[in-house]
């Protein structure tokens, strides 16, 4: 019988085919699906997260492991009549109105997903109303906003103000990031958290939800 350690290693190696095979083996041997997820798939991803945090591997390697983990999750889902994948929390993510910068925000989304969050990536140039609409629709735990221009960062404040006016600010945590953003600015506009990069954004979200 395959072991959780072997599955964890396959996720760590980013070996999608092996992850699928081992997940199937474990399930057909009667392993508990939640243990397959937690002790095999997520455990492997946790090891990847540590290496990334320590600057020992790069984003593509994290993404390969995440892809392998997701393939394993799909196998678990298919094998169960009803199965709710555990999530660390729901995040609505977007670059604020007037700003087209995409890649930093997408990296944050990828890192969040790789770490077990459910991410709703709204895209770029997102109007405060669209953030509100998404909060109503997805009921996230966190709204994460990005801006790379000094002339768009004030739209983070507009979005937070709009959330407050809609009575939603107390229902979510708001984190912000991007080149011109500072912790001081986050405090000033009433954001709950600030992250200077994608890896720390994950940590900030985990802390906010603890």
């Amino acid at each position: 019988m395959a072991s959780f350690e072997e599955l964890s290693q396959a996720v760590f190696d980013g070996d999608e085919a092996q992850v699928v095979k081992l997940t199937k083996d474990l399930l057909s041997s009667g392993a508990n699906p939640m243990e397959v997820i937690n002790k095999g798939l997520i455990a492997g991803m946790d090891r990847v997260g540590v290496l990334f945090k320590n600057n020992e591997i790069f984003v593509p390697e994290v993404l390969m492991s995440a892809k392998a983990m997701n393939a394993g999750v799909e196998v678990v889902k298919e094998s169960q009549q009803t199965f709710d994948m555990p999530s660390l929390g729901k995040i609505v993510l977007g670059t604020v109105k007037g700003d087209l910068h995409d890649i930093g925000k997408n990296l944050v989304g990828m890192m969040m997903e790789s770490n077990g969050f459910t991410v709703y990536n709204l895209g770029v140039d997102i109007d405060p109303d669209k953030f509100i609409e998404a909060v109503k629709k997805y009921q996230p735990d966190i709204v994460a906003m990005s801006a790379l221009l000094t002339t768009t960062m004030m739209n983070m404040k507009s979005t937070i103000d709009a959330l407050a006016a809609a009575g939603l600010k107390d229902k979510v945590k708001v984190i912000i990031g991007g080149a011109p953003i500072t912790q001081e600015f986050a405090n000033e506009i009433g954001a709950d958290g600030y992250a200077p990069d994608a890896a720390s954004a994950v940590e900030v979200c985990k802390q906010l939800l603890n």
Partner: peptide, 8 residues
């Protein structure tokens, strides 16, 4: 050069 934080 660019503008300080402000909307346009």
């Amino acid at each position: 050069m660019t503008l300080p934080p402000m909307n346009i």
